[in-house]
Simulated assay, not measured.
Amino acid sequence: MTEPTSAKAIVVFDIDGVIRDVGGSYRRALADTVEHFTANAYRPTPLDIDQLKSEGIWNNDWEASQELIYRYFVDKSIPREELQLDYNTIVAFFQSRYRGPNPENWTGYICDEPLLLQSSYFDQLTSVGIEWGFFSGATRASATYVLEKRLGLKSPILVAMEDAPGKPDPTGLFATVHLLALDKLQPVIYAGDTVADMYTVEKARSVEPERTWIGVGILPPHVQETVARRDAYAQTLREAGAAIILSNVEELTSVQIQELLR
Rank of each mutant, 00 (worst) to 15 (best):
A175D: 13
H178L: 05
G215S: 11
S206K: 15
D163F: 12
V227Q: 13
E202V: 11
I189V: 14
Y190P: 09
A228C: 10
V201R: 00
L185N: 12
D231P: 06
Q186D: 01
L182E: 10
V227K: 14
G215A: 15
V195I: 13
L185W: 00
A164L: 04
Y233Q: 02
A181I: 04
Q186R: 14
I214L: 15
M161D: 15
P165N: 05
Y190K: 07
P170Q: 13
A164S: 14
D193I: 05
K167H: 08
T236Q: 15
P168R: 10
K184M: 10
T212L: 11
V227H: 11
M161S: 14
M198Q: 15
V216Y: 10
P209T: 11
P221D: 04
A181E: 13
V201W: 02
A196Y: 13
T176P: 03
E202R: 13
V188G: 01
V227E: 15
P220T: 04
R211F: 03
P170D: 10
V177I: 15
A228Y: 09
W213N: 06
I214C: 05
G172M: 06
Y233L: 03
L185H: 12
R211N: 09
A232G: 13
G172W: 04
A191N: 12
R211P: 07
V177L: 08
L179I: 00
L179V: 00
M161Y: 12
Y190T: 03
E202I: 10
Q186I: 05
E210M: 08
A232Y: 09
T236N: 13
P165D: 03
E202G: 12
A181V: 04
L179Y: 02
D169G: 02
A232V: 02
D197S: 10
A234F: 05
D163L: 09
G215L: 03
L185E: 10
G166T: 11
R205D: 09
T226D: 08
I189D: 06
H178N: 14
L182C: 02
D193T: 03
V188A: 01
I189W: 02
I218D: 03
T194A: 14
E162Y: 07
P168S: 12
L173V: 05
E210F: 05
L219G: 01
V216N: 09
V216G: 13
A164E: 02
L180R: 08
D193V: 07
F174H: 09
D231S: 11
A204F: 06
E202A: 15
A204M: 03
G215R: 00
E210T: 12
L173I: 06
P220L: 06
P209E: 08
D197L: 07
G172N: 10
A234I: 04
A234T: 08
